[in-house]
Structures are given as C-alpha cells and as structure tokens.
Write a protein that binds this DNA or RNA. Structure first.
Length: 597
RNA sequence: GGUCCGAUAGCUCAGUCGGUAGAGCAAAUGGCUUUUAACCAUUGGGUCGAAGGUUCGAGUCCUUCUCGGAUCACCA
C-alpha cells in the first residue's frame, strides 16, 4: 500500500488554494503561522478563555445595561453617545485583555467573532489602529503590514489578540484589537455556519469537523441570567444541597436541539456527577483488566485477540463484574468502575461494539437497597446534567422523580389480553401469589421472550422490572421466599434497558453449579451462555459478604438526557467501517474471513 | 443478513414529463467599514456515488455494485 501524499489527504480545491495563498503571504509577514504559545490575560482571575470573559460579571452587567438602554430605542436608533462613552470608559478601566480563539465568521470587514469552542467574543480591528505581532520568537510588532495581514485571515483560523474592551451600538461587548497574532491556519474550509455538518457519516468519522460546526453554528444565546450552563466553571459543590425543585422547567423544554458540543458537555456532566456521588458515599474507583483470559460475567460474544509473548488467547472484557466481586472478597466494601466493555455483536441505534458502563458493588446491601440507591444516583445525575428531573425524549416527558417497580410476570400479564396467559405458567412472586411456580427453564424462557417482545417497548417511564427467573440469572441470589425467583432487577426507560442489578450470589458451591449449568447450555449451542471462571469460585470460597451490584449503561442514559435517538450521537468516535475510496477493494480481509464461526 | 430510504458545488439543499446543471452559505475581485446569519456588485467553482443498459438524448428510467441512514432479527 502506497503512502498517500499530503495533497491526496486534504484534496485541494479552489477554497484550499485560496487559503494556501494566504498562508504563503502570512509566512512572509509573520515568519511563522504556528507559534508555540500564546499567553492569555488573567482578567477574570483564571485563564481567560472566551467563556470565562463572557461570563465575567462586570462584562455581563454592561451587556445587561446596554440591553436595557436599547430596549427604549426606536428601530435603527443608536444608543446615546454619553451613555456609551461612560460604559466604554468603565470597560477600558478593566484593562486590556489577551484572548485567543478560532474565527467563527468569514473575515470580510472589521468585525469577526472568536470562539473557544463554547462561547464567542467579537473582536474589532481598524486599519492603522493595531499592529501585527511577528512570530519570530521575539514578538516583534509590525505596524505597516498589520492591515494586509488582517486581510489574509480565513474563516476558521486561530488568532490571538490584545486589546481593550468596548461596547458596540448593538450592545455587544467586543475587543478593540491593538495587537494581532496568528496562532494557527485553517487549510480546509469550515462547515456551513447555519447547519453545521449534517451528513451522519462525516459527523461520526470526522467528529472534529462536527464539533467545529457546532461551535460556529448560530444559536440563540441563552439569557444572560442564571439558568444556562454555568460556563464560569465556578461549581461550588455546596449550594447544590439546596435541592433544585421539580418545578423547574423540564430539561430542554421548548428549546432547540443540543449542539454536538453541548451533547458531549452534558455527557461529561453525567459522568462526573456519578463519580462525585459515589465518592461522597464512600465508593472507591478501581480499574480491572480490559484484556482477560476468560470472557465471562455477562451473556455476550467477545472480541478475541492474542498475546504474543505469553502465546495465549485473550478476550476484550464483556463485563468487569467478576473482578469487582473479587475486590469485595478482598475487603473493598464499596467499589466501582466506570469504563468500557466490548461485545462482538450487532450494531444498532442502541448498540455500539464498545460501550461505557458504570458498575458498582456494595457489601451488606440487597437488591432493594440497590434499587433505592440507584434511584438516588440517577436523580441527582439527571438534575446536574439537565437542571431538572423531567427529560423530554422523542416527545415523551420522562420523569426521573418517579420509579415504578413491577414483577416481570405482572408486566407480561398487564400487556396481555385477559385470559391469554394462564397465571399458572408464570413464576410466582410476592405480588403474584396466585401463580404457581413450575420454574422449568422452558417456562422461564417463554416468560422472558414474552417480556422482551411485548413489554419492553411499553416501558417508557423509569421502571424497575423485578423478580427475574433464576435460571436466566446465573450470578444472582435467589429470593429467600421463592427459590425459582432471582433477586434481580432491570431498569427500563423509553423501552431501553438502562441498568441491571441483583443481590450477588456469594455461595461458592451454588455459584459453581450455576456455572456448570451455563456450560451445558453452551454445549447445547448457546454461544452466550456464561463461561466457568474457576478462580472466581476460589475467590468466593474465601468468603464474600452479602452484597448488591449494578451496571448502568452510560451511553443509553446519555441518549435519554440529550434527546438523541442514536447511541452513535453520544459516542465521540463510534465504530464505522474503514474509510474506503471509490473503486478500491474492501480492505484486505479475504484471508481472514469469519466463515469459521 | 432481510426490507425501505438516500448519495447533485467546500457546506446545506432544489432540480417538474427524459431535452443546455441551479439556489443559499462558503471562496475570489472591487466597494463600503460599529457590523449582528453584515451589505452591494462582479467572478470562479460539478466525473450529478461507481459501472453497465434503454434512448436521438439520462441527474432523471432499468440492472448491478459501493457507501450511508432507518427498521426488523441478535444484543446492554
């Protein structure tokens, strides 16, 4: 395979040629368009990102005052000069700012906006009133060529400016440029400023362009008051104990869809809020192997690989479950891992080959305690991420303030025609005392199938399905009142399984027998039946306290909280087929087809 | 893997009954220079996903293929 040329990679066109010409000219003027650093000021007391400056209180105040002044003006009328002059004097007294960012607008004219990826700040350059800072290592100022250089700016370039703050006739606080420095050139054209990138393939393969498009996109600024995302980053941990009431508007109510950037900001908030919550409750974060000699702890097909030095087969883990419980054996009473799992199965709107799962265990707790804790965890996380407890998802209002708990058999009966199911064929439960409990695998599987085909998609509001058949729950403890029922739940929201938890089986002998059953299922052709893990049996034999555990699908939860229909919209770089040019053969997999499996 | 939908300028999209390839944004040139999706004028930009077929003539109709999306089956 030949190495592609630079030109083959960037695919020149009239637009890249124009940029290349500008680059050449700028190299003459500045010596270099890729300097090593740019020091921003400390106006706001922290690193002066554009977001930090935009939310800096004195500046926000000025914009509010100008908005009030302009509200009293007629269409097209300019604000009185004396008010503007007074405000501008105040702004100038704050001192010069040094900011850096990417041009969000084409450069024609004196005004452009710079973005730090989140917020925008306008800069204003007037011929003869600023100098060009050469990137010669000495930051030599050049007055003569400053305007020429300004005209070489392209949409998407990174520049740094030094200047004073002022307010325009339209009330926008802007930076009057006094020094201009080029920080990086954009050789490729920017995405459409109104639409961003919409082609799902480019969005996913080239997430960087999608994110650029998202930051360039013109979007109504949230009201300057509180309520919007707190870009200042001054999360004070304490004021959050004043609980946000459920009377807040539902997340994103009536608002436009989140930009790509906002989706991933929100994902980060979900994850960090969960970490904080668990740590506040005494949980310890651990990391267990991603490459494992046995793929077990869940029912799924693994990815296989090979370790050369050891000459052994390894599997990308399908779940950290058995490792985490080994740690409970070892004395970690509360332990969690928030990381990736890998399953070599289909891809769909809710399945990606690698997905993020939060898994945690708590000693001395049972399945009911775990459901309570899970509710609390989700509630606080939803509030932190969206500002409310009600998330709008594809037209449904999902209320995280209320979780229902119903048994699997009850759920099946509910959606079935009266009399269609003889209650005797369903496992009994506390809530279903009339049912007898045959508990044979066949009936259990039938129940599960009916549940999956008829019930799952009807579970829109958060619902814990409880009382799973034991035969399909090889790692769960049985209900002490009913040996055919496992103390296990799955949480469903909008028809998707979001969490799965149970009272952990800690009797080594029984666990061994359950594995043996699974192995015989495997021999009968069930590829996903669980694999016996001898070392895990040995670990349990040292004694594991009673414990409950849970796995929460972070990607799916993020879908729900960002109103995204596809899991690929909440994963930065989801799996895609290898990129392929027209006419090329499918990249050489012939020799290693999967026909063997 | 099955079914359905899609691929046209750098981006977002029109393209009627088969008859010269279009718009907005982006780009270039000039003007303007406190604009708010800046504006005005001019210009350049296309292997219409690929290959084949029907036809005097194909972006448009047919076949095959590639890629993508939705959906069903499997799966969290």
């Amino acid at each position: 395979m030949s190495i592609p040329t630079f030109e083959e990679i960037i695919e020149p066109n009239d637009q890249t040629e124009a940029r290349a010409e500008h680059l050449e000219k700028l190299l003459e003027l500045t010596g270099n368009v890729y300097p090593n650093k740019f020091v921003r000021t400390k106006l706001t007391g922290s690193d002066d990102t554009i977001s930090a400056i935009k939310s800096y209180q004195p500046i926000a105040d000025v914009e509010a005052r100008m908005a009030a002044v302009r509200a009293g003006l007629k269409e097209g009328e300019r604000p009185p000069a004396e008010i503007k002059d007074a405000i501008n004097a105040e702004l100038k007294a704050l001192g010069n700012v040094r900011i850096a960012g990417r041009l969000t607008t084409p450069p024609r004219g004196n005004f452009v906006h710079l973005t730090d990826g989140m917020s925008k700040l306008q800069i204003y350059a007037k011929k003869g009133q600023f100098t060009l800072i050469k990137n010669d290592g000495k930051d030599t100022p050049d007055e003569e060529n400053a305007w020429t250089a300004w005209q070489m700016i392209d949409h998407g370039d990174f520049v740094g400016v030094d200047g004073y703050l002022f307010v325009t006739n339209t009330g926008e606080v802007s930076v009057h440029v006094e020094k201009l420095q080029f920080l990086a050139k954009a050789m490729l054209p920017m995405p459409d400023k109104m639409h961003g990138i919409e082609d799902p393939e480019i969005k996913q393969r080239q997430r960087y362009v999608d994110l650029i498009g998202s930051s360039l996109q013109v979007k109504a600024e949230p009201p300057a008051s509180a309520g919007g995302t707190n870009a200042a980053g001054k999360v004070s941990g304490d004021d959050e104990s004043v609980s946000i009431s459920t009377s807040l508007p539902p997340a994103d109510a009536g608002g436009s869809a989140l930009t790509t950037r906002e989706v991933f900001e929100r994902r980060a908030k979900i994850i960090s809020s969960m970490r904080r919550f668990l740590e506040d409750h005494g949980y310890v974060e651990v990391e267990t192997p991603m490459l494992t000699p046995k793929a077990t702890g869940a029912a799924a097909k693994p990815f296989e690989t090979h370790h050369n030095a050891l000459d052994i087969k390894l599997y990308a883990r399908i779940a950290p479950e058995l490792y985490l419980k080994r740690l409970v054996v070892g004395g970690f009473e509360k332990v969690y891992e928030l990381n990736r799992n890998f399953r070599n199965e289909g891809i769909s709107y809710k399945h990606n080959p690698e997905f993020t799962m939060l898994e945690f265990y708590c000693a001395y707790m049972d399945v009911n305690g775990m459901m309570d804790f899970c509710e609390e965890l989700l509630r606080q996380s939803v509030e932190k991420a969206t500002g409310g407890l009600v998330a709008e998802y594809e037209g449904n209002q999902i209320d995280f303030g209320r979780f229902e708990r119903i048994t699997m058999s009850e759920a099946v009966v509910r959606v079935s025609e009266p009399g269609a199911i003889a209650t005797g064929s369903l496992p009994a439960s506390k809530k279903n005392p009339v049912a007898t409990a045959p508990g044979s695998d066949l009936l259990d599987r039938e129940l599960l199938e009916r549940f999956e085909s008829d019930v799952e998609q009807t579970l829109i509001q958060p619902t814990f399905i409880i009382d799973f058949p034991k035969s399909i729950s090889p790692l769960s403890k049985a209900d002490p009142m009913n040996p055919q029922i496992a103390e296990r739940f799955e949480l469903f929201i909008n028809g998707m399984e979001v969490a799965n938890g149970f009272s952990e089986l800690n009797d080594p002998k029984e666990q061994y027998e359950r594995f043996v059953d699974q192995m015989s299922e495997r021999e009968r052709g069930d590829e996903e039946a669980m694999v016996l893990d001898e070392d895990y049996i040995r670990a349990l034999s040292y004694g594991m306290p009673p414990a409950a555990g849970i796995g929460i699908g972070i990607d799916r939860l993020t879908m729900l909280l960002t109103n995204k229909h596809s899991i690929r919209d909440v994963i930065l770089f989801p799996h895609t087929r290898p990129e392929k040019k027209d006419g090329e053969a499918r990249s050489g997999g012939e020799g290693e087809s999967e026909s063997g499996d």
